[in-house]
């Protein structure tokens, strides 16, 4: 997946603004009323470039609580807001394999 920061802003479908929380790097999402949430379901979802730019501008202005804000695709289904590609699925759900446990076996 090309790093989001290297992509031109193109919006096809639903998107959110996502970033990493400053203190621990955890994945957070910008909410409609402002502020960040670790729950993707609470993210502000927009569907056009202008709205996405405005969200991103508001999120980027907060340089203290989160870093590296960018626009990420999401899908809306009966389970609510879901990550829109593999990168975002990994960011939200963690690595796609079991982390090592005692003695790695």
């Amino acid at each position: 997946m090309t790093a989001p920061s290297q992509q031109k802003l193109k919006v096809h479908g639903s998107v959110v603004v996502t970033a990493n929380r400053l203190g621990d790097g955890a994945v957070v999402h910008w909410m409609a009323g402002g502020g960040w949430s670790a729950e993707l379901g609470k993210a502000a979802v927009v569907t056009n470039a202008q709205a996405a730019k405005e969200l991103l501008a508001a999120a980027t202005a907060d340089d203290v609580n989160a870093v590296g804000a960018y626009i990420a695709p999401v899908e809306l289904n009966s389970d609510g807001v879901q990550p829109g590609n593999l990168r975002e699925r990994i960011r939200v759900g963690g690595p796609t394999f079991d982390l090592p446990i005692t003695f790695g076996i």
């Binding site: 990493n20 203190g23 790097g25 955890a26 340089d63 870093v67 990168r87 960011r91 963690g94």
Partner: peptide, 26 residues
């Protein structure tokens, strides 16, 4: 953490100490 340094100012300092920001954590 107090906001005295911006991320732009801080990033080169953390990198000099081997601290990267990855997908879901530092």
């Amino acid at each position: 953490l107090s906001g005295e340094l911006t991320e732009e100012e801080f990033k080169p300092l953390r990198l000099m100490n081997g601290v990267y920001l990855q997908l879901h954590a530092y």
